[in-house]
Design a binder for these strands. Structure first.
Lengths: 216, 216
DNA sequence: CACGAACCGTACCGTACGGTACTTATCGAG
DNA sequence: CTCGATAAGTACCGTACGGTACGGTTCGTG
């Protein structure tokens, strides 16, 4: 655990990281409109000139913010021991819960809103970054888990991507979109424990090889 | 078919509808940044003063655009005849395909991007409108279908919302989000026929009462 | 024809933002 | 102590946008 993965580490100095932190807070609180260069400079007690020196322009700042946030959300890779049906279920439920926690995080929501808002202008550069550094990372974790489960003959599927897509859909459904749209989420939908278990239950009923793995 | 549902009809004159059409085209082509009042006026050959007289302000224009688009996407309610397993499957597959078509439409994508981008500023007013006039309409159609299927003892579930959530997740997965982010969608993911069938297949395996309904 | 309503085109105003330049202050190296 | 680098703070510039005002034109109505 706590593997020294420097691949997606932030490439900036502590001071610059602090600035990025302020910028993220600003974005979370006020949306993209509040994220002005003057506002960031004021919130971070730095000069606009430094912002431009460090990040080039506003888009550079946005990219740096995404990279910085991605470097903070580290994906745990605790994956030791042999897989049996019960353990697989536990790991999947944990994955589902982690996924929901990440997607529901206010910083994640704010950055996704930002990237979606800019998707039409910048050729979806920010969208690619988010996808590459965010979903794709957590997707690898699920993919590895699913592969291990298949090798252990606990699940059966032909196309790993398709299986992961099903897993994702069962877990998230349209909750992410509704959160992105700012809809108030009901208490029931906020119950990630139950949601994760329900989703994994359904997933194992679809893909599990052993009826025990789907027993409630 | 073609029922005269005036409930979600557009409340504007033909001329104003034409203006809204131009505005939607502008939004689709250039994103929110391109949707300036001057730009809309120029594209629609009308004056800015008329825009403000008709729609109040920029937000009023955005709301009107959403209402206008919702009034165009009419949900077919062809639901006659008795349900059997095969017909239910057909109807569900059709629903899934329609849902994917709607979500993948460029106008829908542009409006969703717009609403998501404004979610932090305006108290998600636009998000609510989209949700109310869009998803909730198509959700009713699916809900009615699922209820009918349950009465016909073709499917079994306790919570209709939960069943619909599962159905939605199986159909859409994260495809909508990826499209919103501007990610290029692979040819495989664009194969809505196959995707719809796979999703309904899985759904019926989860909720169907008869094994025949899940037979491939 | 005369009148008024609706509306187009354009000019205009205030403001806010991205980006740049300049001045001042801190601080480590020689 | 001096020098140079880094960066804060501020003032500034150009532009673009939301919103308003006004002159001119069309068109329906009496």
């Amino acid at each position: 655990m706590q593997i020294a993965v420097h691949s997606n580490q932030s490439d900036y100095s502590p001071r610059q990281n602090a600035v990025l932190d302020s910028a993220l807070r600003l974005l979370v609180d006020g949306g993209e409109k509040a994220l002005t260069t003057a506002g960031v400079a004021r919130a971070a007690n730095c000069s606009k000139e430094s912002l431009y020196k460090w990040f080039g322009d506003r888009d550079g700042l946005l990219s740096a913010m995404i990279g910085f946030q991605a470097s903070k959300v580290r994906t745990f890779e605790a994956h030791a021991g042999r897989l049996d049906a019960a353990r697989l279920r536990d790991l999947l439920v944990t994955f589902a819960h982690d996924l929901l926690d990440v997607l529901a995080g206010d910083v994640s929501l704010a950055l996704n809103r930002l990237a979606i808002g800019q998707a039409s202008r910048d050729g979806s550069k920010l969208g690619h970054m988010l996808q590459e550094r965010g979903r794709s990372q957590i997707g690898k974790r699920a993919g590895a888990l699913l592969e291990a489960a298949r090798r252990a003959r606990l699940v059966r599927f032909d196309d790993a991507d398709e299986a992961y897509g099903t897993l994702y859909g069962l877990i998230v459904s349209d909750l992410h979109l509704r959160m992105l749209l700012g809809e108030p989420i009901s208490a029931k939908d906020r119950n990630f424990d139950r949601r994760a278990e329900k989703a994994i239950d359904a997933f194992l009923r679809l893909y599990g090889t052993d009826e025990n793995s789907a027993a409630s």
